[in-house]
């Protein structure tokens, strides 16, 4: 097979064309990341006059801190919740749309909107909806005899940030699931129905396995989202409370660094967080992807 290839006579043109992307990556990713790595090995005195190199002290301190373990656990619960809720709902919606794709243009457009909403705005939205004093949902829940107050109940607060974060991500997952479903030939499903499989069986034995590349891809994307981008939503809804019950790893990086001004510890945490995500992605590629290919 022949690939299309452009020949540049000017040696510098490719570099010039690449430059904007490279500069952005450098300024907004590489540079801060290297700053974080450096300062994770340093300690600043309370007034920011002197920094000393302290080797791994920040790391040992973070890792022996019970509140870090708490944040790690919160993150696990949060990640599991968001991934399960956002992917589950997205798949359900996508299956509904797939059944009537021609009439579904408007429906699809509406479902995609939440993705365009900034995390903080999503957070504020849900903060309003679930506000114990003025919110609509606690009012409705009260009608069912359920007392909602996420300012007091850690479990409810966790549920709130899961819902708020998942809601935003559903649109994104939905789009990919719709595309994935569209690429499964209708004749497979028809063959299965002639082979005696009901709708549920068809879905779980034929369609879902064939969607696994999409599912796998979305899992990685969603975990990354949960780990890094959920900050705005949490900050706007619960601010990590009550009593640190919704403080996830990324939120703790912010609390300790920006609010607590403990740059060393915060940097160490962000380096650890990056390590965790890299590790998770690696695991997924290594073990899950093997089963995905057919």
């Amino acid at each position: 097979m022949q690939t299309k290839r452009s020949i540049f006579t000017n040696r510098w043109l490719p570099y010039v064309l690449l430059a904007p992307q490279l500069i952005i990556t450098l300024i907004f990713f590489i540079w801060p990341a290297s700053q974080a790595v450096t300062s994770s090995f340093e300690r600043q005195d309370p007034f920011g006059f002197r920094t000393t190199f302290v080797w791994f002290e920040n790391y040992t301190r973070v890792l022996s801190d019970p509140s870090y373990a708490n944040a790690l656990w919160n993150t696990a619960v949060f990640a599991f919740g968001v991934v399960a809720v956002s992917m589950g709902f997205a798949l359900l919606l996508a299956v509904c749309v797939d059944r009537a794709i021609r009439t579904a243009r408007l429906y699809t457009t509406l479902l995609v909107w939440p993705y365009a909403v900034a995390p903080v705005v999503a957070g504020v939205l849900w903060w309003f909806l679930f506000n114990p004093t003025i919110g609509l949902l606690p009012y409705i829940l009260e009608g069912f005899g359920y007392d909602w107050n996420h300012r007091v109940s850690g479990g409810q607060a966790m549920a709130l940030i899961v819902i708020a974060s998942a809601w935003k991500q559903i649109s994104y997952n939905f789009l990919f699931f719709v595309a994935g479903l569209q690429s499964v030939p209708a004749s497979l499903s028809e063959a299965a129905s002639i082979d005696g499989a009901g709708p549920f069986k068809r879905f779980w034995t034929i369609i879902f396995p064939l969607l696994s590349p999409t599912t796998f891809f979305l899992m990685i994307i969603n975990i990354n989202y949960v780990m890094f981008e959920s900050f705005g939503t949490i900050d706007a809804t619960t601010s990590g409370g009550p009593g640190q019950s919704t403080t996830t790893l990324v939120y703790k990086v912010y609390v300790d660094g920006v609010a607590g001004l403990n740059i060393g510890s915060s940097s160490a945490q962000s380096v650890l967080l990056m390590g965790i995500v890299i590790f998770l992605t690696f695991i997924q590629f290594r073990y899950v992807e093997r089963r995905v290919n057919y």
């Binding site: 030939p185 004749s187 497979l188 028809e190 063959a191 299965a192 129905s193 002639i194 082979d195 005696g196 499989a197 009901g198 034929i206 064939l210 057919y294």
Partner: peptide, 17 residues
């Protein structure tokens, strides 16, 4: 379709990949 007890061979075979 399942209750009709028929079998169909499709043009694209429709084998479960």
């Amino acid at each position: 379709p399942a209750e009709r007890d028929i079998a169909m061979v499709f043009q694209n075979y429709a084998l479960y990949p």
